[in-house]
Design a binder for these strands. Structure first.
Lengths: 203, 203, 203, 203
DNA sequence: TATGAATGAGTTTTCATTCAT
DNA sequence: CATGAATGAAAACTCATTCAT
């Protein structure tokens, strides 16, 4: 079941590359190392990925596609904006923690992507950002969140904190992923909320 | 006055390296490019810096030394913890924005430092973090901030947001540095405050 | 038939490197010069040899493997020890002269090998030395050679002379390789023989 | 008494260089390392030695001058040639062992000297060799040594063994320098002596 | 589909030496 | 006598990528 060839090669290559990039950096990992760790040869890799940076692009692209789809579903639901925003914020933290390597690798190395790929990924990111921002603005219009803070900035504030999670959080540390999510979302929403609120943080 | 040799060479090299690292990444900038931009030869650079990564280390080490010294002064002052924390938070944003290149370069590339330099910088960072955290804890003991949030986590939350500033903020954008600072500090402190707070962030 | 690609590249590279090392020294020969002389690129060389010192190791390792195998065959033959020792001594001189460049290069430059490669080659050398020494000791037990000289030292004495052959002998000189071999072996065996001098070595 | 400046600087530099060259090779030792170990700066070294290879030349030149002078004295004495040759052979081993680093360094690295310095040292060496050879020839004329061996070759044979001493001999080993000298001289002279074996060398 | 030999431009770093002070 | 900043040329080695098979 866990035989060498279990997963399709492209997936295996991406998984291996993600791990190595997270450990040694994108530039610190050679194509040779990737294919060796995946148990194939260079030719095989170049058959599926036109260039090394395709791996980097694909790594983040897939995570972002996943997160975007989930966000769309949560944001489009019913109920007050605050509830939907909370659910979305919790979700983005959960998936981010579940794919911390991917996130780390990308934010460290996106500047190494060739211009057009960088543009593509930025566009995808922007779509995600906009969707999230819309929720904040909805909450502001509803009066739950104070209007004095630009929604854009608030979203950047929150995402900034999330994207840096890997600089300090570790699965073996005292806080599990769920707790971090609750605390972060609490800090974020309480910072936004009009009446402050008694924010319960984690349970 | 602004002749080629105005500033001492080591300073000039660091300034040039910072700019180039910010533009093209640490790995994307060759030593050749650095010395060409500084108008000297490689030998001159290696006379002052034992390795390329010394530049990276020094860039962040100097910023962190500056910020730490300022933090110590602000944290050690009189008045309620909240006021000192606010001042410290505003200050770290101001100096971070004033040295955004340094910050960006470091958080993108610290993983490329050799182990012992990484350790050194982590230790310096930890001292800064501890000092900031102590302020949060003081506020919690005073009853200004709610105790339900681990101070450590709150500091990481805020610093995460700050360290990612360069991914979206630009001096030519609609928000000036001061405004961003006020908004960020407002979001952070309101997220922490016990009674939610009426804090309107920036005026 | 003697086209550029006649021999496999690794062999060609070793041959070229041997010649250049002998002419200009190991340190005085750049990888660039080797590959230029072999008509390939650096990448090609590093495809087969992980480092420049691999060439040096391989050069001597191959010669030593050849000599060891021949020594084993001669030493293991029948007849009195003296005859076998003579044959072995003649053989080591013949093959040494036939591969004088290899020998020269190695004894000049083995100290430049990284520790573990140096250890490896020393171990191989020791095996060769032991086999030769056993022959001397056999001759001493048989009574042909005087027992007053440590066999170890005698072997080092002889090999020292052989390994320095390239400092004075030249194929175009007055003595051909066979003559040198006979003289050297004569000097060595007569020095060892019982009815030789009265000299008991040290007092 | 043993203060830093005890010996004149040139001597100190040569001593330090000899040790470092013996430990790490000539090319593996930088001028920087030499002057650091001697506690001076580069300028000071270049004040006394025009180039790095001057150190190498001087190291061997001084040893050779010493040995030549001693040889002249011993060779020019009275008594049978064999006695004088024995004394000279013992002496060259003693001084060689006493200056093993110098010898090692030179035979490893003379090929790195610029052509004219190489020529100079070869000429000095040849004078030494000639003087030694004359003793052998005298012994052959006197009838003590067999005439069948070219004196030149015999001297090269012996010197080869001596020059390789450092590849196996160590002051802490079981044999002290005097013992090695006696054995080596014994092997050499017995190999030469007429009533030694019947070996007529090559046919 | 996949191999693996080969490319070629590039990297960081080293180092003997010079020269103004 | 001595300093030490600066030079400039070269060194070993790396690596993403290609291509004939």
């Amino acid at each position: 079941m866990t035989a060498a060839g279990e997963r399709p090669l492209p997936e295996r290559l991406l998984a291996v590359a993600t791990r190595l990039f997270a450990e040694n950096g994108y530039e610190g990992t050679s194509v040779q190392e990737i294919v060796r760790a995946a148990g194939v040869t260079k030719g095989a890799m170049y058959h599926y990925f036109a260039a090394k940076d395709d791996l980097l692009y694909e790594i983040y692209h897939r995570l972002l596609a996943l997160q975007t789809e989930r966000l769309r579903r949560l944001a489009g639901g019913a109920g007050p904006a605050e509830e939907r925003l909370r659910a979305a914020a919790v979700d983005v933290i959960e998936t981010s923690v579940a794919h911390l390597d991917e996130l780390t690798v990308f934010f460290r190395s996106m500047h190494l992507l060739p211009a057009e790929k960088q543009k593509a990924v930025r566009a995808e990111r922007r779509r995600y950002h906009e969707c999230f921002r819309a929720l904040v603005e909805e909450g502001q219009r509803e009066g739950t969140f104070r209007a004095g803070v630009p929604a854009d900035l608030a979203v950047n504030f929150f995402f900034g904190a999330v994207h840096q999670l890997s600089t300090w959080w570790h699965p073996d540390g005292p806080l599990d992923a769920g707790a971090v999510g609750e605390y972060y979302v609490g800090l974020f929403l309480d910072g936004l909320r009009k009446d402050g609120g008694l924010g319960e943080g984690s349970g």
